[in-house]
C-alpha cells in the first residue's frame, strides 16, 4: 500500500487525473468503434506541433522567472519570419530556413529587451508577462494592417493593403517537416521530420542546460542568494533564459504553422501561452523546476486528451463540449499549479 502511495505521490494529483481521463476516453473511443489509428496519427502530429512551444517554458522556469506567459512575443516574431519568407515567394526548405533565419535574431533581441523589463518586476513575471502579451498582440494588429507586404497571397484581395487574418501556406513551406521521411505503420502516420525537429530542439536545450553557462542559469533560478554568493550575475542569467525562451517560441510557431498549413495573425498569438503553460504543468513541472521529461509527458497528455475527447464527446454529447472541457482543464491545471508554488 505504501508503495502505491509513493508512486501516486510521484505522479502527482493533476497528472494522475489527466492520465485517468485520457485512458477513459481512449476506452470509450474503442467501444464507440472510432478509428484509433487516425487518433494516434492526430496525437503525434499535435505533439510535434506543440512540443516546442511547451519547451519554450523550460528556460524561463530554470532561470527563475517562472512560466513564460508572454510566448506571444516570440510567436509574433516567428510569424514575421514566415511572412517575409512568403513575401519573397520562397518555398520548401529554403522558405523554412529563411523564416527561421529572420525570426531567430529578431526574437533574441526582443527577448533581451523584454528580459531587461522583467528584471524590474521580479516575482510578478507571470502577471506582467500576461499583460505584456496583450499589449504586444494589440500593437501588432496595427502592424499587420500597415505593414508593407505586397504579395497578393498575403494581403486582402480588396484594397490590396493589410495582411489577411489567416494565410494558407500551401504554396510556400507548408508541411515541409511533416512530410520529411514520414511513413505509415498500422494505419498511423508518423511525422518523422516534425518529431526529429523537436528532438533536435530538446537536445539543444538539454545540452545547453548542462554547459557551464546553462548550469549557472539553473543555479540562478534555483537559489538567487546562493547564486549571488557564488559570483553569478543573476539578472544576466534571467535575461538569458528569457532570450532562449523567446527564440524557442519563434521557432515553435514556424514549426506549428507549417504543420497546420496556415499562418494565423491578429489575435491568434494571444492563445498560445495558456495551453503551453498547462501542458508543462501537467507534465509535472512547477514554477521552479522544469525538465525536458516534463515537456514530453505534459504535451502528450494534454494534446492526447484534447484529440481523443473531441470525437468521443461529439458523439455522446453536444459538439462544443470538447472545447469547453479543454478550457476547463487547461485553466484549472494552471490554477492548481499556481496555488502550490513551493511543492515539488
Amino acid at each position: 500500500m505504501d508503495k502505491i502511495k509513493a508512486i501516486y505521490n510521484k505522479i502527482g494529483f493533476p497528472r494522475f487525473i489527466i492520465t485517468l481521463l485520457l485512458f477513459l476516453f481512449i476506452g470509450i473511443a474503442f467501444f464507440l468503434d472510432l478509428s484509433l489509428a487516425s487518433m494516434f496519427t492526430d496525437i503525434l502530429k499535435r505533439f510535434g506541433m506543440n512540443a516546442i512551444l511547451v519547451l519554450a517554458m523550460v528556460p524561463t522556469v530554470q532561470s527563475g522567472s517562472g512560466i513564460n506567459m508572454n510566448l506571444a512575443l516570440g510567436v509574433i516574431l516567428g510569424l514575421i519570419g514566415c511572412l517575409v519568407s512568403m513575401e519573397l515567394g520562397l518555398a520548401g526548405w529554403t522558405g523554412f530556413g529563411v523564416a527561421l533565419a529572420i525570426a531567430i535574431p529578431l526574437a533574441a533581441l526582443a527577448g533581451y529587451l523584454y528580459g531587461l523589463m522583467l528584471n524590474r518586476v521580479k516575482g510578478q513575471e507571470m502577471t506582467v508577462g500576461n499583460y505584456f502579451g496583450y499589449s504586444v498582440v494589440s500593437l501588432m494588429c496595427i502592424f499587420w494592417l500597415l505593414a508593407p507586404f505586397k504579395n497578393p497571397q498575403l494581403v486582402w484581395a480588396m484594397g490590396g493593403t493589410g495582411l489577411r487574418t489567416t494565410l494558407t501556406m500551401d504554396d510556400s513551406f507548408g508541411k515541409v517537416l511533416d512530410n520529411f521521411l514520414s511513413f505509415e505503420i498500422m494505419g498511423v502516420t508518423i511525422p518523422t521530420g516534425l518529431l526529429l525537429f523537436f528532438a533536435l530542439c530538446a537536445l539543444i536545450v538539454y545540452v545547453f542546460s548542462n554547459t557551464k553557462t546553462g548550469l549557472a542559469m539553473r543555479v540562478s533560478g534555483s537559489g538567487e542568494k546562493f547564486a549571488i554568493s557564488s559570483g553569478l550575475n543573476v539578472d544576466r542569467y534571467r535575461i538569458l533564459g528569457i532570450v532562449i525562451s523567446t527564440v524557442l517560441a519563434a521557432t515553435a510557431i514556424i514549426v506549428y504553422s507549417q504543420s497546420f498549413g496556415f499562418l494565423q495573425l491578429y489575435m491568434a498569438p494571444l492563445y498560445v501561452s495558456m495551453p503551453a503553460a498547462a501542458s508543462i504543468l501537467i507534465g509535472g513541472a512547477n514554477l521552479r523546476k522544469a525538465s525536458i521529461a516534463h515537456v514530453i509527458i505534459g504535451t502528450l497528455l494534454f494534446q492526447g486528451l484534447l484529440t481523443v475527447s473531441l470525437p468521443v464527446i461529439n458523439i455522446i454529447s453536444e459538439g462544443s463540449m470538447a472545447e469547453i472541457i479543454r478550457i476547463v482543464i487547461s485553466n484549472g491545471i494552471i490554477l492548481y499549479a499556481l496555488t502550490r508554488k513551493e511543492a515539488v
Binding site: 557551464k212 549557472a216 543555479v219 534555483s222 537559489g223 542568494k225 546562493f226 554568493s229 557564488s230 523546476k289
Partner: peptide, 24 residues
C-alpha cells in the same frame, strides 16, 4: 544564513558540494 545563501535547497547534495569549484 545557511538556508538562504549557503545552500540550494531544491538541488541534490552533489551539486551543492561541487558548485563553487565548478563555477569559479
Amino acid at each position: 544564513d545557511r538556508k538562504g545563501v549557503g545552500l540550494l535547497l531544491d538541488e541534490p547534495i552533489d551539486l551543492n558540494i561541487a558548485y563553487n569549484a565548478m563555477e569559479s
